[in-house]
């Protein structure tokens, strides 16, 4: 192999440019030049480092043959393997099966017992998830308020308008299942399921905002078609027909909240939703 007199220029240049890039990064940091400068300089520095190393390795490669190394192909020869097995299983103590079995029982018991503290990851004793999921805190007489806490009158919404409401007095973040969407439609357009005529006030209908497919808030309201659409998987619900799903993967309608007005004309609930809110779950 010939010995070159000087370091290859391209490699040295690449490394020096890399150093320059690093200096540029430091300067960009001190001067506050922003994300593009920081990333461009440091990224560029590494890029030149990569180039220099690649060029260096290709210079070495140019003079290198293919190397060959032997590899063992098969399993250990039988004799050696038998010796290993004997060394592993030789036991000077009699009735070792019983001993191993007892040890195994101890280890299994410890392992099983160690799983019990995982219960602490679940909420306190006495909460049955199926019960909790089946109901929401909405009760008859609860006023409907916006996220800011303002109660709502039917006339506050224009026909075609929509707003998200919660029961008065509860923290919306702690009781997500109470999230309700109010929509005002022309009463003549309503074709609700039987028995729900009294659940509407002046064309204002209330449905659970949680999609029955995967629980996302059904946030898109199109007032020309009077449809609520969920942006996660594009389920569409017909507001005039009990929020029945008209397309998409949602399997059942959004539960409806029965409405009335109180003495001051504000909207109140007449009870909980017509069914469990959100998507179906495994034990239901």
């Amino acid at each position: 192999m010939s010995r070159p007199e000087r370091a290859p220029r391209s490699v040295v240049a690449a490394f020096l440019l890399s150093a320059l890039g690093a200096a540029g990064f430091a300067a960009s940091y001190v001067l506050g030049l922003g994300n593009e400068a920081l990333g461009g300089c440091l990224g560029g520095s590494f890029a030149f480092l990569a180039l220099g190393l690649a060029r260096w390795s290709s210079l070495i490669d140019a003079g290198e043959p293919d190397y060959v190394e032997e590899r063992s192909v098969g399993p250990t020869p039988q004799g050696q393997y038998d010796a290993f097995r004997r060394a592993l299983t030789e036991q000077p103590v009699p009735r070792s099966r019983v001993l191993w079995g007892a040890l195994g029982t101890a280890v299994a018991a410890i392992g099983g017992a160690a799983l019990f503290p995982l219960r602490s990851l679940l909420p306190a004793m006495g909460t049955d998830p199926d019960d909790v999921l089946a109901h929401t805190p909405w009760r008859a007489g609860d006023r409907l308020v916006t996220e800011e806490g303002t109660p709502v009158r039917p006339s506050d919404l224009e026909v075609g308008g929509t707003v998200t409401v919660f029961p008065e007095g509860l923290d919306p973040r702690e009781h997500v299942d109470t999230t309700t969407v109010l929509v005002r439609v022309d009463p003549a357009d309503l074709r609700l399921p039987a028995g729900r005529a009294g659940w509407v006030v002046d064309g204002v209908v209330a449905y659970s905002k949680l999609c029955t497919h995967a629980g996302c808030p059904v946030g898109l309201y199109t007032d020309t078609s009077r449809q609520l659409m969920c942006p996660c998987h594009h389920s569409v619900f017909d507001v005039t027909d009990g929020a029945r799903p008209v397309e998409g993967p949602a399997p059942h309608a959004l539960p409806q909240l029965p409405l009335a007005t109180d003495g001051s004309g504000y909207l109140v609930a007449r009870g909980d939703f017509s069914g469990p809110v959100g998507p179906g779950w495994g034990n239901h």
């Binding site: 006339s155 075609g160 308008g161 929509t162």
Partner: peptide, 30 residues
């Protein structure tokens, strides 16, 4: 539902009140 970066300030306010096309309107009480 179009992007909003090129809409003038007044048009944004007007759109909220008018509720053009599929957009719901938001009146002064809301």
């Amino acid at each position: 539902a179009p992007e909003l970066w090129h809409t003038g300030k007044r048009q944004v306010a007007e759109a909220m009140r008018v509720g053009p096309g599929p957009m719901p309107p938001f009146d002064e009480k809301q």
